[in-house]
């Protein structure tokens, strides 16, 4: 399954958020999208997972525009873990994970033993085996995020989209989550705020600024002091660790508004 983005344009509330984005998403790799607040990361992902309709250009799945596919069939191709998961009603963890089977079901069809098995396996994968009966609202933020990840895993899609899911998680959960999705060996598209996390867990990075792609490449190619200054407006030092991965250092004064 191949996802490509062609000349994507989108305005929100009268201002242009995406200005002709063209991207080739490599298969079975972790593809990170970075950029400052308002650069269009989330809007781009939301166009890919069909919550937003692009105004120009298109997202292609195996060469055909997304609009050609019914929602149910794209939901069998890509699963989403988004940043906001606040529900007004309380489900049990198991019920939420089982909903990940929805795209594989007709509306009247009941969940069968297979679905329950997949749901249980997904919970186990995120380290929440045995949590099925617990109420979702009683869980901590980190646990809730993992439940939603388990639901996405239960969709059994070749592609996983993470829309800044680690935003309000502490560092341990951020690392656990990234570690887990990286180990899946599936196509992962993720928006990342933390440049060091992007450097460690992504195979390819695309940098967005004002709705345009300003750089695409490996973390080492992309995360340079020049680019960080140009895009984020801060001065940072970039060093390489023993594996050749960049890590970014910030020092007092580097965020001075100029």
């Amino acid at each position: 399954m191949k996802i490509t983005v062609q000349d994507l344009e989108k305005s929100l509330g009268g201002s242009r958020v995406l200005n002709g984005i063209t991207l080739d998403i490599p298969e079975n790799r972790v593809f990170g999208v970075i950029g400052p607040n308002g650069s269009g990361k989330s809007t781009l992902l939301r166009c890919i997972y069909r919550v937003l309709q692009p105004e120009g250009g298109a997202v292609f799945l195996d060469g055909r525009p997304l609009g050609d596919y019914p929602l149910r069939s794209t939901a069998r191709q890509m699963a989403v873990v988004a940043q906001h998961n606040n529900y007004n009603f309380d489900f049990t963890v198991g019920e939420i994970v089982l909903m990940g089977r929805s795209p594989h079901k007709r509306p009247f069809e009941r969940d069968n033993a297979e679905d329950y098995k997949i749901a249980a396996q997904s919970l186990e994968q995120v380290g929440l085996a045995g949590f099925g009966e617990r109420s979702f609202s009683s869980l901590s933020g980190g646990e809730q995020q993992r439940v939603v990840l388990a639901r996405a895993l239960a969709q059994q899609t070749p592609c996983l989209i993470l829309d800044e899911p680690t935003n309000h998680l502490d560092i341990r959960y951020q690392l656990q989550l990234m570690e887990l999705v990286r180990g899946l060996g599936r196509t992962v598209i993720t928006a990342v705020h933390d440049l060091n996390i992007a450097a460690v867990y992504c195979d390819t990075l695309a940098v967005l600024d004002h709705g345009c792609v300003v750089a695409v490449g490996s973390p080492r190619e992309v995360l340079t002091p020049d680019l960080i200054r140009q895009v984020y407006g801060v001065t940072a030092r970039v060093q390489l660790d023993e594996n050749g991965l960049p890590y970014i250092l910030f020092r007092p004064g580097c965020g001075t508004i100029s």
């Binding site: 997972y49 069909r50 909903m99 929805s102 795209p103």
Partner: peptide
Amino acid sequence: LTQCRTLNLMLLGDDTAVTLGTD
């Protein structure tokens, strides 16, 4: 009774429902 799956999805909201294949 035939709509339980969709009713459940409704409680998760429009965006989540789309990612689970239902408008």
